[in-house]
Design a protein around this nucleic acid. Structure first.
Length: 533
RNA sequence: GGCCCCAUCGUCUAGGUAGGCCUAGGACACCGGGUUUUCAACCCGGCAACAGGGGUUCAAAUCCCCUUGGGGCUACCA
């Protein structure tokens, strides 16, 4: 019966790394019949966006990562932290400091020059409350630092075994900031104790924080939870997969192309000239919506990083959960495609591996294909509608019966976006069809317009049909192929381009049936007219 | 720079905690072939790895050390 938690800081959308951490914490809680708690670590006033926590929760829900308690907001628990800070101060285990950022920076620079770790020089006599007021009066910042003990701290990590730290390398660290908020370390340790967290599964980037947390727990007389530091997910360029990766790709694209109309880009992105300059110089990163808008304007694809990015690209939540669970973890055996329940059932935290892993998008695509195949029709339709809602598709709002038939006609599809792409032509007016240049050339114009000639034959054939049914249309096409001694492709492809504008669509007979004979003939005529000159 | 983590096919990984069952298994990708009304799906076949160097041992992918290479942290961010 493990009690675990996911403790994101609400600085933006939930991204892959966070989702993976959340998933493993959920897995362990479910496997043991325990509890999974959501805690929002919003102790940084400057970095919190008001909607971010909401977004993170939406993304978790979409993935099916549901929490049993919370969300608890640390910003609403100030008195609790204050109480413990006072206690530490009282016990002489923490002390006030009044250094300015500049002073601190100078000490750091000096340490670097001496090739040493930064260690804050603890004063012999700690400042008294009266000194605090004096410092404030002088306009100096007031923070509280924790006294690191001496000796060695050994972290018992479920994944990595014993990891030893010499406290001589660890500095007294800040537990309360100038604005009165606790730092992450303090709030995290207190909440883990108060919320009864007994197992902390988190990213390896926290391994170095763990001795600090243990020191705090010891000073406060808290229990020590079990720790498991999971490997980091890295992206193609090397380095931890980060939200900044999308901006990075955008920046590279802008720099690589001097032809870009920067004025227009600024307008589309909704930022200022100065901000764009700072972005290109690597000094500032625009917001997500701004990055997206600029990418769309430039017609470039950004790598999916945030969970919503994957939704927008047509991935299933089932896919993400399955794929993420197999990054740095393996249940053993050859089975890879699994549902959340199967993953929970087979979950064994001793089977984590220590190596960082690369996020392989091709394999993700393949997982998506498998999961699309696995879903029952009703669930898949629901997922498709969720996708359409965010995809800016003309198919949005179409009735379930139609959408259901479309989805069914696309079995074998790799993403939901692919289904939309193959069937959009059904939702356009005839005049709105965009003819893909390459497709037109290849199947209509090539070989002296043999495709166009075929269209004429098709039109005549369709007009002569005594009775128009799916069967009669199909028979006509097949008879025509036989008569001309051609594969069906020679007939279907020109027809496809005429009615959908490209060589890729849902199966041709389904396409005609769904479009209707009237529009089909109209589009054939329009195509003949348009490309005959 | 300091501290810490890691190292099996191109990628995700099995095997490593009880060394011989590993002439190293699976999946994705890739290559070749088949099927086909497009794309996809599907079927058959193929390529491909224990980072390097020392030990320990009758025996090492598995244990130890070093080198090299990757990664993380190094904030009044979390």
């Amino acid at each position: 019966m493990a009690v675990t938690r996911f403790a994101p800081s609400p600085t933006g959308y939930l991204h892959i790394g966070g989702a993976r951490t959340a998933l493993f914490d959920l897995l362990w809680a479910r496997k043991t019949g325990g509890k999974f708690i959501l805690r929002i670590e919003d102790t940084d006033q400057s970095r919190n966006s008001p909607t971010a926590a909401e977004q993170v929760m939406n993304d978790l829900k979409w993935l099916g990562i549901n929490w049993d308690a919370g969300p608890f907001y640390q910003s609403q628990r100030r008195e609790i932290y204050d109480k413990y800070i006072a206690q530490l101060l009282n016990d002489g285990k923490a002390y006030y400091c009044f250094d300015t950022p500049d002073e601190l920076g100078a000490i750091r620079a000096e340490c670097e020059r001496a090739k040493k770790n930064f260690i804050y020089a603890r004063p012999e006599n700690f400042p008294a409350e009266a000194d605090v007021e004096a410092a404030r009066a002088q306009g100096r910042p007031v923070v509280v630092r924790f006294c690191m003990p001496t000796g060695e701290i050994v972290v018992e990590d479920t994944i990595r075994g014993q990891v030893k730290f010499d406290c001589a390398n660890l500095s007294d660290f800040i537990i309360q900031k100038n604005d009165g908020f606790p730092t992450y370390h303090l709030a995290c340790v207190i909440d883990d104790e108060l919320m009864g967290i007994d197992c902390v599964i988190r990213g390896q980037e926290h391994l170095m924080n763990t001795p600090l947390h243990i020191a705090l727990q010891n000073a406060l007389g808290f229990k020590r939870p079990a720790y498991a530091h999971i490997s980091v997910t890295v992206s193609e360029g090397g380095g931890k997969m980060s939200k900044r990766d999308r901006a990075k790709v955008l920046k590279a694209a802008i720099k690589a192309n001097p032809e870009i109309d920067l004025e227009k880009l600024i307008e589309v992105g909704g930022l200022t000239n100065d901000k764009l300059k700072r972005f290109l110089k690597g000094k500032e990163v625009p917001d997500n919506p701004q990055v997206d808008a600029m990418a769309k304007f430039l017609g470039i694809e950004l790598p999916e990083i945030n969970i919503v990015d994957f939704l927008k690209s047509g991935y299933l939540p089932e896919t993400l959960v399955n794929f993420i669970a197999l990054l740095g973890y393996s249940p053993g055996g050859d089975k890879e495609i699994m549902t959340l329940d199967e993953i929970i059932e087979s979950f064994d935290p001793s089977r984590f591996n220590k190596t960082n892993s690369l996020f392989d998008r091709k394999k993700l695509l393949s997982f998506n294909t498998e999961h699309i195949k696995m879903l029952d029709a009703e669930t898949l339709l629901g997922r498709y509608k969720d996708y359409l809602a965010v995809a800016d598709s003309p198919a949005k709002g179409a009735d379930d019966a139609l959408l259901g038939r479309i989805v069914k006609s696309c079995d074998g599809a790799r993403t939901l976006a692919e289904i939309d792409k193959k069937s959009r032509f059904l939702f356009c007016d005839n005049e709105e069809i965009e003819y893909d240049e390459k497709s037109v050339k290849k199947v209509l114009l090539k070989n002296d317009g043999e495709g166009l000639a075929m269209l004429a034959l098709l039109k005549a054939g369709l007009n002569q049909l005594a009775e128009v049914t799916n069967e009669s249309v199909e028979k006509m096409l097949r008879d025509l192929a036989e008569e001309k001694q051609l594969g069906l492709g020679k007939i279907a492809q020109p027809l496809r381009v005429a009615i959908c504008g490209s060589t890729v669509s849902i199966p041709i007979f389904e396409a005609i049936d769904l479009l209707g004979l009237e529009k089909t003939i109209e589009r054939i005529e329009a195509a003949i007219k348009k490309f005959s000159s």
